[in-house]
């Protein structure tokens, strides 16, 4: 059974002034534990699609079923709570709270979820170790490299064991080595924790890392390939 399913998903920006059709009748399904990349040229609708899946924006038409819940029908307030409990996010940049340490940043979501303190501490340490930052627990974001910051962001997104994690161009600001490194970590966590992971990129270097590659062109699915592994 699919974790996520989109049915006739369309998004038109500026409907009244100069309409921009960013997504056009997208039908996709993602299974539990999948590791998928969304690729496509700039402006093809990657960010738009991820924002829809993550409940950050409402589609113009169509629906999004997450574990059979149509999140397009949720109210703003319910959506925020839904995101908090079910979805992990990694953005291209500005992922972290600058005034908090790595371990505090990772704990943040779990704190908002009101998980017990002890469990939070343990989990935050554990996952930071998994992303190779066991020795930088108390570093502030400014004291970390771009790659390390993104690893903290991935750790935070996965720490609360969400239903799935959305990462919009997580490697865009990273050098090749750090980008590969981050993808390795994402892949490993996806396997170890069996968390569904979807990331967008137009970076040829990292596309192949995903087992499934969906290509968007002008807001429509141009291809959907399984590389297997």
């Amino acid at each position: 059974m699919a974790v996520i399913e989109t049915i006739g998903l369309s998004k038109i920006y500026n409907e009244t002034i100069v309409p921009v059709k960013a997504l056009n009748e997208v039908n996709l399904a993602f299974e539990q534990g999948e590791f998928t990349s969304i690729v496509g040229p700039s402006g093809s609708g990657k960010t738009t699609l991820l924002n829809m899946l993550g409940g950050l924006d409402k589609p113009s038409s169509g629906s999004i079923l997450i574990n059979q819940t149509d999140i397009t029908k949720l109210k703003e307030r319910q959506l925020i709570d839904y995101r908090l409990r079910h979805i992990g996010f990694v953005f291209q940049s500005y992922n972290l709270i600058p005034v908090l340490t790595a371990v505090e940043n990772v704990s943040f979501i779990m704190l908002l979820q009101k998980q017990p303190r002890k469990a939070i501490d343990q989990r935050a340490r554990e996952i930071l170790e998994q992303v190779g930052l066991g020795d930088r627990l108390n570093a502030r974001p400014a004291q970390l490299s771009g790659g390390q910051q993104q690893r903290v962001a991935v750790a935070r997104a996965l720490a609360s064991r969400p239903d799935f994690v959305l990462a919009d161009e997580p490697t865009a600001n990273l050098d090749t080595q750090s980008a590969f490194n981050l993808l390795d970590i994402m892949e490993k966590l996806n396997r170890d924790e069996n968390i569904t992971l979807i990331f967008s990129t137009h970076d040829q270097r990292v596309i192949e890392r995903a087992r499934r590659v969906i290509t968007l062109v002008d807001g429509a699915v141009a291809s959907d390939e399984n590389h297997g592994s």
């Binding site: 925020i80 995101r83 409990r85 992990g88």
Partner: peptide
Amino acid sequence: TRELGMLMAVGMNKKR
């Protein structure tokens, strides 16, 4: 702006 947007995106509600 970006940071506050990020916080709201990851689930920090308006009250907080």
